[in-house]
């Protein structure tokens, strides 16, 4: 620390070697490249996407303008992500607790590795499995939900015969985000100071009470940010949804019928092939919307982390 940053005001100007100058310059350029690249993402998407906001009306068919075209897609994106979160969060917390506090030490590390493997499986393989295996296997569950919980708007049915529904997509997405939220949650759970855990135990708390007294309060904000990062992933996930859903431009909460809203990303993936330049611009414009939504979510997650770090520091 002390040597790397010599005091700034020096009477004589420090000698800068050419090698140092080049190397430092290259490092700085690399950092600037990242800045440029990110700016480029925004600028290029805007340049190519803006025409998509005011294209000829037939491009938006069956909708009439951009916002009524993108509206159902945004709805579908959020619906799929929320379904995925509702399924994934309890499991993530459970598995994270399993690794950090329940599993015998000898199997905790391999388990953590296996869960990380889940994250390494490419999304297209999840899509393949979701479309060819899960969709048909889950049909009895959807029948059951329809018969017993059909009064809820989510299960109003009638259940799709292919099984390729929002619920299936949500489950596949959930399996994909479980590793992310689990990895972060287990890290914050494991960081709970031993002292606090022992304080709870010494009061005669059972293991579960110890977790509620010492672990959860400590880990709350970390878990929230883990969930938000999982949400960001679920919002942007393309292939799994595109391969599982049979989509139509509707807005419905019905999770098990055969008409399901597409998500922004899956809509791009399924329509890029027959895209005319106008349509391509439109798809890019929806991509811009997706970028904005995920940016907002990730930004909020980071804000939560930052705030809690400040709280801890205090």
């Amino acid at each position: 620390m002390s040597v790397t940053a010599p005091p700034q005001p020096r009477p004589a100007k420090a000698v800068v070697r050419p090698g140092d100058r080049i190397f430092a310059g290259a490092a700085r350029v690399a950092a600037l490249t990242i800045m440029l690249a990110l700016a480029g993402v925004f600028v290029f998407l805007a340049i190519e996407g803006l025409p998509g906001l005011s294209a000829p009306a037939h491009i938006y068919a069956p909708a009439e303008d951009f916002w009524s075209y993108v509206g159902p897609l945004v709805f579908g994106t959020i619906l799929a992500a929320v379904v995925a979160l509702i399924i994934a969060v309890p499991f993530s917390i459970g598995v994270a607790l399993f690794i950090s506090h329940y599993a015998p030490p000898r199997i905790a590390a391999p388990v953590a590795y296996v869960i990380d493997l889940l994250a390494a499986v490419p999304s297209v393989v999840y899509g393949l499995w979701g479309g060819l295996a899960l969709a048909s296997a889950i049909r009895p569950v959807m029948d059951w939900l329809y018969e017993n919980l059909g009064f809820l708007p989510f299960f109003a049915g009638p259940p799709s015969v292919t099984g390729r529904t929002m619920l299936t997509a949500g489950i596949v997405l959930a399996i994909m985000i479980v590793p992310i939220t689990t990895a972060i949650s287990r890290e914050v759970f494991a960081q709970t100071p031993r002292l606090h855990e022992e304080a709870a135990m010494a009061l005669g708390a059972t293991r579960w009470e110890m977790i509620r007294l010492a672990v959860f309060p400590y880990a709350r904000s970390g878990v929230i940010s883990a969930v938000m990062l999982g949400l960001g992933r679920a919002l942007g996930e393309t292939m799994a949804v595109a391969m599982v859903l049979s989509a139509s431009p509707v807005v419905t909460l019905n999770l098990i019928s055969d008409t399901n809203p597409a998500t922004i990303a899956s809509n791009i993936a399924s329509n890029y092939k027959e895209a005319t330049p106008d349509k391509q611009a439109l798809l890019i414009a929806t991509g811009l919307v997706l970028f904005a939504v995920t940016f907002a979510v990730n930004f909020a997650a980071r804000w939560v982390i930052g705030r809690s770090e400040r709280n801890v520091a205090r």
Binding site: L195, A199, A202, P217, Y218, V312
Partner: peptide
């Protein structure tokens, strides 16, 4: 009951 080396009130 037990009291530890370093004070450890629950921080939250």
């Amino acid at each position: 009951g037990m009291v530890f080396q370093r004070p450890n009130p629950f921080p939250t």
